[in-house]
Design a binder for these strands. Structure first.
Lengths: 249, 249
DNA sequence: CGAACTGTTGAATAAGGTCAAACCAGGTGG
DNA sequence: CCACCTGGTTTGACCTTATTCAACAGTTCG
């Protein structure tokens, strides 16, 4: 069961820290999805004032576990993975973050996960201390953050069920449906774009690359999905997939 | 990998709903541990006014996933498990709650886990609607709830690493150290009291009863723990256990 | 005492992991 | 343009870990 003792992170290291730009939250593409929804008029302007846009290249590390001076922000474009590591390099991805998702914990001054860009990423960053101040002054912001934290906790618990009790097949089915669901929230239909590779799917599902690949093949052979290329999958029978995901099949 | 298709819950069903008593938060045994720490003087009195003590017998179900009218409260005495179920009865425990721990989600009006008393439990219950009002009026309470939610999320992510990437031996070692740690926070030393049985440990660690039992025997044989009886374990070499838990051994 | 649990241990089995080879782009450079 | 390399992916053969199945021991409680 010891995996990947090698290779914690093949991609590059922290960017030479990309350009930063002031923000205009009122015209932000992901406003309705993000924590910022909670705010209106004057509050939104105060948030604008402290927000900074930052760009990351694919493979950049945004922060590492144990890093202090926690950063928080909203994903505007691209995909991020957050993960935990064991000493020997075994990796467990604890979340994929898409546009609108919130990154970081505004109540903890130390990160407890690693975060890495899977694609080019645009992040709307809020300085940690400024956010802490804003939280105290804007109850609706804190309210929203509390709701988001509880949603995240619920997702994490769903994933504990997956990791502790589901078969490889059930895990992949659950994963694909989760992605479809997230995409549809962002108004995206059609074939799924998978911004992560097989190894990252494996590290999210608690499996190996080979097992993930085999399960993809199995679902394809069963006619439940169509694989256009390894990063694009069409769901053909969402209902059958859902049965598999819930262990009802 | 299909487990426990039988027996979702051998114990009794929801209590005929035990006596309820008004509370005196100022003299509460778990105040410093609970969310209530955040409050002082007049605020604490307002909390007292809505708090109600409720007793549960071992095996009682406090609430079920999908239940609406979410209850929230603080554990005063005893141990609770929260868990998720698959259609065929496979169970994943997502948390054991001890005195001082907070139960339920004050921002979600529907439960998404089941909760069951493992021992006789005394719970300090706050009516859902009253809590929602209090949150809006007492920023320090919401602040504390946000911090607790983030701590819970961090724990859940640690557990995802355990379920996705650790061996059976590493899982049990991690579990025992986690219990030692929780006990010491409550000022409890000496041999560990395990309020849960082997099946519940298995359902927390994503293993089977037999595997858990075998790993206990192995740790005993290696001289790392002493098993007084199946519900009382002494940790002999916490350092060696920690190495195993982190995969450093 | 005997039934019903809970926990432990052993032997057989299966699911998923490991190792290894082949495949298949997409890029590079002659 | 094409040969070659590289990294990700797929597939096969084999192996390990944990599960399954089964027997048995210790407790608790009618």
């Amino acid at each position: 069961m010891k995996l990947a003792a090698a290779n914690p992170c093949p991609r590059h290291e922290p960017a030479a820290l990309a350009h930063t730009l002031p923000q205009d939250c009122a015209h932000c593409a992901v406003r309705e999805l993000a924590v910022c929804t909670a705010l209106s008029g004057p509050e939104l302007e105060r948030l604008s004032a402290i927000a900074v846009s930052r760009q990351y290249a694919s493979g950049d590390t945004l922060f590492r576990a144990e890093d202090s001076a926690a950063m928080v922000g909203t994903v505007v474009r691209g995909t991020i993975k957050t993960y935990k590591l064991l000493a020997d390099g075994r990796q467990q991805i604890v979340g994929f973050l898409f546009p609108g998702d919130f990154v970081g914990s505004p109540t903890q001054d130390t990160h407890h996960v690693f975060a890495e860009a899977l694609t080019p990423v645009e992040l709307c960053v809020f300085p940690f201390s400024a956010v802490q101040r804003l939280i105290r002054e804007m109850p609706s912001l804190e309210h929203r953050l509390l709701a988001v934290a509880h949603e995240d906790l619920e997702l994490a618990q769903d994933w504990m069920l997956l990791l502790g009790r589901k078969t490889a097949q059930e895990r992949l089915a659950t994963f694909l449906l989760m992605l479809v669901n997230k995409a549809s929230i962002r108004g995206i239909g059609g074939p799924l774009e998978l911004p992560m590779n097989r190894g990252e799917i494996a590290d999210y599902l608690g499996l190996t690359i080979e097992t993930v690949s085999r399960q993809f093949s199995k679902l394809k052979k069963a006619g439940l999905i169509r694989i256009d290329d390894s990063h694009a999958v069409a769901i053909i029978h969402a209902d059958r997939l859902a049965e598999i995901a819930e262990g009802t099949a």
